[in-house]
């Protein structure tokens, strides 16, 4: 039926258009439901200024570590100054020297350092 094709053509030309109010409602829905962009701001942690001992303690891994290191240092100084006889006999036996004024920890390096 050619008349039907004519009718279709007329109907296509006279299609229902959305009202301005509908368009506004749809855009309002779009704005309301639009996912908000995620902000990738750097994470800033504010740390209060700490004292010398607190910083030192944190650097060495805590109070117990710092106490251990301090104790070892004091004990080393003590042995250096007092030089107990029992310890001296042991070091003499190990190094072959009477006194422990100098100790070569890397004797093999001397050959490299010696100038011809």
């Amino acid at each position: 039926m050619d008349d039907l094709d004519d009718l279709f053509a007329q109907a296509r030309a006279g299609a229902m258009q959305p009202s301005d109010d509908l368009t506004r409602r749809v855009l309002a829905d779009a704005e309301r439901l639009q996912p908000k962009p995620t902000a990738f701001a750097p994470r800033v942690t504010v740390r209060q200024s700490e004292g010398f001992w607190a910083g030192l303690s944190r650097f060495f891994g805590g109070g117990f570590s710092l106490a251990g290191i301090g104790s070892a240092a004091v004990l080393g100084l003590f042995f250096g100054f007092v030089q107990p006889s029992a310890l001296m006999s042991m070091t003499t036996g190990m190094t072959g020297a009477d006194t422990l004024d100098t100790l070569e920890l890397m004797p093999g390096v001397d050959a490299l350092l010696t100038e011809e």
């Binding site: 299609a15 855009l27 779009a30 704005e31 639009q34």
Partner: peptide, 18 residues
């Protein structure tokens, strides 16, 4: 639109709604 572009919503509405 899902990434936050407002113009995309307007254009999609303009294309699809009629």
């Amino acid at each position: 639109y899902a990434n936050g572009d407002r113009d995309a919503a307007r254009l999609l509405t303009h294309r699809l709604l009629p």
